[in-house]
Simulated scan of single mutants.
Amino acid sequence: METILGLDLPTWWFLVIGGLITGYGVLDGFDLGAGSLHLFFNKEESRRLVLNAIGPVWDGNEVWLVIAGGALFAGFPLVYGVILSTFYIPFMLFLVALIFRAISIEFRSKEPWTWWRKMWDISYTVSSTAITLLLGLVLGNLIHGLPLNSQHEFTGNLLTFFNPYAILIAFTTLSLFMLHGAIYLVMKTENRLYAKLTVLVNNCSKFFILCFILTSMATLIYIPHMTHQFKDHPQLFILPMIAVFTLLNIKRNIDSRRYFTAFFYSCIITSCLLILFAVGLYPNIVLSTTDPANSISIYDAASSTKSLKIMLLIAAIGTPLVIGYSIFVFWTFRGKVKLTDMSY
């Protein structure tokens, strides 16, 4: 099989898709976390401030999800078909939640009525929380494995998705995004809202630490296949060590009120957890709990070599442009949030 820099093309595409999903988790993660925390703010001015903190960037951050979906379809069409058909109902709910999050942000400020704004505030929080929980639920089931037959068809039902491990991953994702979002908001606000957020950040960090410990224990005890790569390649133990080190540094920087550094570390731990997920699955993408032979690996699902080479070139050109755009937007809207006539 043809290789580039020592890696075969399916592995390269596995890394590209993993990088895009990680970019989405890091960037849209704090948007979703901020949305989940929205109803904790009681005053109208506070809600407008936290909404405008993510206002210039939330839609651009979703681009990473669109590109990741396109890359999965292009690189591993079999996996794309299996995942979307298996998680049809969760993904439909996910799309509905995405729509309501967008219209909640855009419609809220269109009328001055209190009931109108409260309705969209509730919609914004519910949709943001639903998106996060659904993402975690899908991730948890991919880690746990799915009942697939020899034709890679899902043989379970809707209740299959709600296994204890997947639910735990869903709430761990929610706790991570809430922490990520709270740190971002505290960097963007000042005065009384800043003081309120310092308390909220501390509480979110405790919530995430608890979920992190529970998830780590559950994975080691009940999901043994996630440790195989680490047993075969002991050098990979650096990844969980980095995750623990990063978690400790998030807490230390929060206590010292160095929130920019804490946000950097929350980006690192989001990336690190997704990398651990990818390492645990590789070379598989979808695991079968019915029979390991029914699992789908990157080699089973990859497109033709010619297609992968052409698309990898396109990805090499397009991804830096998306990264550059994201950096430009964040740099343009840096600093504390100020309300103007043009604000949400």
Results as ranks from 00 to 15, higher is better:
328 F>K: 15
291 D>F: 06
217 M>Q: 05
115 W>L: 11
267 C>N: 12
199 V>E: 12
279 V>K: 07
287 L>H: 02
339 L>T: 09
291 D>I: 09
318 G>E: 10
155 T>G: 07
231 K>N: 11
168 L>V: 04
278 A>H: 06
302 A>L: 05
115 W>E: 14
207 F>S: 02
190 E>S: 12
133 L>E: 00
250 I>E: 00
195 A>H: 14
90 P>H: 09
289 T>Y: 08
85 S>I: 11
315 A>M: 15
191 N>A: 11
114 T>M: 08
53 A>H: 02
223 I>T: 10
331 W>E: 13
172 T>W: 00
142 L>D: 00
110 K>R: 15
256 S>Q: 15
222 Y>M: 10
100 F>G: 02
54 I>C: 10
198 T>D: 08
136 G>M: 03
45 E>H: 13
139 L>G: 03
263 F>I: 03
294 N>T: 06
335 G>L: 13
330 F>I: 08
71 A>T: 09
117 R>M: 11
291 D>T: 04
121 D>G: 11
210 L>C: 08
69 G>Q: 06
11 T>V: 10
217 M>G: 05
138 V>K: 00
332 T>L: 15
126 V>S: 07
228 H>Q: 11
125 T>I: 06
334 R>Q: 15
235 Q>C: 07
20 L>F: 12
249 N>R: 13
23 G>R: 00
342 M>D: 15
57 V>F: 13
224 P>S: 05
32 L>C: 09
215 T>V: 02
316 A>N: 12
236 L>F: 15
184 Y>I: 07
145 G>P: 03
205 S>V: 04
281 L>S: 03
12 W>K: 02
184 Y>A: 04
45 E>G: 09
257 R>N: 08
181 G>H: 03
65 L>N: 01
259 Y>A: 01
45 E>C: 07
148 L>N: 04
243 A>I: 07
3 T>C: 08
36 S>T: 12
223 I>A: 04
60 G>A: 11
142 L>M: 14
238 I>E: 09
227 T>H: 08
223 I>F: 01
132 T>I: 06
274 L>I: 15
251 K>A: 09
208 F>Y: 15
335 G>I: 12
139 L>C: 10
262 A>S: 08
328 F>T: 11
256 S>K: 15
143 I>M: 13
42 N>I: 11
226 M>W: 00
193 L>V: 05
